[in-house]
Simulated scan of single mutants.
Amino acid sequence: MNVTELLAGLQARHDETTARAAELRDQMQHLTAALAETEARLAEASVNITRSRLGRLTRQGFLTQPGRGRYQKRT
């Protein structure tokens, strides 16, 4: 194997590695976006669950709602 063949082989491996790195970057961006979307959905679900529970406790008489958005334990 001469120097030219060695350099050509190294260049080919470099090109393959560069292409693979680009694929991995794209995949990471996709996964990051999917994670952000999932986190947003979970946060929204958590808020809805909390509102639902607060509403149920209010209806059951365990909490009073003296002002908008302020729940207090009934004493």
Rank of each mutant, 00 (worst) to 15 (best):
Glu16Cys: 11
Thr4Ser: 07
Val3Met: 10
Leu42Glu: 02
Leu10Glu: 10
Ala19Met: 11
Arg25Asn: 14
Thr64Arg: 05
Arg25Tyr: 14
Thr4Trp: 03
Arg56Lys: 05
Arg74Gly: 02
Leu54Cys: 00
Thr4Glu: 08
Gln29Leu: 09
Met1Gln: 08
Arg74Trp: 02
Lys73Asp: 01
Gln29Cys: 13
His14Ser: 11
Glu5Tyr: 08
Leu31Ala: 11
Arg59Ile: 01
Gln72Asn: 04
Val47His: 10
Thr58Phe: 03
Ala22Asp: 07
Leu42Val: 06
Asp15Thr: 10
Arg68Met: 02
Thr32Met: 11
Asp26Lys: 10
Ala33Arg: 07
Gly69Met: 00
Arg25Phe: 15
Ala34Lys: 06
Ala19Trp: 15
Arg41Val: 03
Arg53Met: 11
Ser46His: 10
Leu7Thr: 04
Leu7Ala: 09
Arg25Pro: 04
Arg41Lys: 15
Ala34Val: 08
Thr18Asn: 12
Thr18Leu: 15
Tyr71Pro: 00
Arg20Gln: 06
Arg70Thr: 13
Glu37Trp: 04
Ala40Trp: 01
Leu24Lys: 13
Asp15Gln: 06
Gly61Cys: 02
Ala34Leu: 07
Gln27Cys: 06
Gly9Trp: 15
Thr50Pro: 06
Asn2His: 05
Arg20Lys: 12
Glu39Leu: 08
Leu31Cys: 05
Ala40Gly: 01
Arg59Tyr: 01
Arg51Met: 04
Gln72Asp: 01
Ala12Asp: 14
His30Val: 15
Ala33Trp: 02
Leu6Ile: 13
Leu6Cys: 05
Leu7Lys: 10
Arg25Thr: 10
His14Arg: 14
Thr17Arg: 15
Arg51Tyr: 09
Ala21Ile: 11
Thr18Asp: 08
Leu10Ser: 05
Ser46Val: 05
Ala19Asn: 08
Leu63Asp: 00
Val3Ser: 07
Ala21Gly: 05
Gly55Thr: 08
Tyr71Asp: 00
Thr50Ser: 14
Ser52Met: 11
Arg51Ser: 05
Thr64Leu: 03
